[in-house]
Design a protein around this nucleic acid. Sequence first.
DNA 1: CGCGTGTTGAGAACAGGTTGCAGGTGGCTA
DNA 2: TAGCCACCTGCAACCTGTTCTCAACACGCG
Lengths: 146, 146
Amino acid sequence: MAAATADDLVDQLRHRGVRITAPRRAVVEALVEVGSHVTAETLHARVQARHPDVSHSSIYRTLDLLTELGIVTHVHLGHGPAEFHLADDEHSHVVCNGCGAVLEIDCAVTDPFARAVDDRFGFQLDLRHFALTGWCRRCRPGGGSS
Amino acid sequence: MAAATADDLVDQLRHRGVRITAPRRAVVEALVEVGSHVTAETLHARVQARHPDVSHSSIYRTLDLLTELGIVTHVHLGHGPAEFHLADDEHSHVVCNGCGAVLEIDCAVTDPFARAVDDRFGFQLDLRHFALTGWCRRCRPGGGSS
DNA sequence: CGCGTGTTGAGAACAGGTTGCAGGTGGCTA
DNA sequence: TAGCCACCTGCAACCTGTTCTCAACACGCG
């Protein structure tokens, strides 16, 4: 687990030939601060709190850049907007259709399934990019029967 | 496998107290015709081929109604728009991030995984509403290593 | 410090989807 | 068969999330 600081990441960017600008630094800092997934909008708000001039297109462009470099990934949690997070955190997400609760599940749980699909269909699942959906204990219909 | 005809479905609607109108009938007919999943836009095009006056809001409203009645469900295949299909066809979808190919996989394959998640987290997965994504044999990166 | 190129901000464009409204129509009733 | 009214429709405006355009700006090499 890397748990890189914002400075580490900015250094890494610089060494890879990426020009360091205020918006980019701000986005990286905000991502490190939140630690888990955020929407572009939330990230924008956080960045603007300190850098009011940063536009939302810069947020998207920077996230795009960081994604290309493998530093950031995004996940789609159900119907809402995409959520971005640092790429050093490898797990799948499960979202409750009822209350919206998000459960993070480890690859250990999903791996056997992914392997089964690979064996049977030659298809390599990526269960991290799209959340799985369903019903949590409290919201599930019926309560277990049905 | 029901394989209901459009007339069957329209009758079913009428008996459930739903007013039968030209747009509604047209949507049901188009859904039965295509047999598999379609986007709202494609459905709109098909319906308009015979009923040029039907607006896209009627398509969405009718799909919404049919969804509420359990006759139609929709599935999100990756980043694109939602795809609708008759609800009598219960399987999960797997979409290739590379070529967009869609694989339909049977519940038999997904059930053990769903059960594992339920046992461990008390979370009842619904793997039919959102497609799983990944890489098909041809598009997978590397080819099996990595 | 000066310059060139990559980056930025502002806002418009875009895509998918939803909603409000005024007028039209299905199907019950007589 | 005609009349009525609640429900349904078409239209167009709206909304959200994301991408694009373009002139102005600023990073960082020399």
